[in-house]
Amino acid sequence: MVGGKLMSPSRLQSVLEAGKFAVTAEAGPPRGPDAEVVRRKARLLKGSVDACNVTDNQTSVVRMASMAACRILSEEGVEPVMQMVCRDRNRIAAQSDILGAAALGIPNLLCLTGDHQSFGDHPQAKNVFDLDSIQLVKIAREMRDAARFAGGKALEGNLELFIGASANPFADPAKIQVPRLAKKVAAGAEFIQTQCVFNIEKFKEWMKGVRERGLDTATHILAGITPARSAAMLEYMATRVAGMDVPEAVIARVKGVPKARQAEEGIRIAVETVRQLREIPGVRGVHIMAIEWEESVPEIVKQAGVR
């Protein structure tokens, strides 16, 4: 089932429900309190995307709170998708933050497990993981649809929120990745943003399994895109970033052009990938994660003809 009993104020939701090809991007908040950094990113993205995710202390590195940066995006006219990880907050804090986000007019929530703290700049920290992402999706849906907190007590007023989760078609073990999406959908994920796609064949295979279980019509799937700025970045992602699948051929293609023109090649690959993904039945949009390279988003969107 897509959509709850309430219509959320989410533009992303209305775009998806109207059957239009959706485009979302991602903005990482700064490692300091300067709102201007977020505003600048918003200005780069405005008009090119339906909504923009704000990461939640991604890779376990301390950054400005996602909720605050989401609000700043809103003020700049970019609809935010608040990412929320289970690493740093228990069910009390998670639900409190959901209410706070809704009060600030943040219309979209992406529920994530979160990277382990051992990757970040505070490996000594205690993690929480009171919930996992599937349980968080379910709790958010019950808060919205049944006006009930996880503990069973009633919530005051109406919560309006479009609730999503992520999926990694390239993760191990492969045989569980479609069932895992099925669980997220059963928990109530209305949209799904996937890990970035470099291995199109593998992604197609996953989508086939997704369609066979009817999940493509039960949720809105946005395929992930990350433009590569350099061959070095691709190599880093291929070997050092958990859960990434970057085929040798893609790295070789970027390596094959002079360094000064590798970013251009990266954009070209991203544009081709968007076009290929758009042809895959069940793909309802793309989610462009241009890591600290938001400038590339308008160009990719324009060249790919999705705006």
């Binding site: 979160g114 051992s118 993690n127 996992d132 992402s133 992520s166 191990d172 859960g243």
Partner: peptide, 15 residues
Amino acid sequence: SKSLMNGPCGGSRDG
């Protein structure tokens, strides 16, 4: 490592 109750996190590699 994350005490997940509903499946793998998506970050594992080769098991």
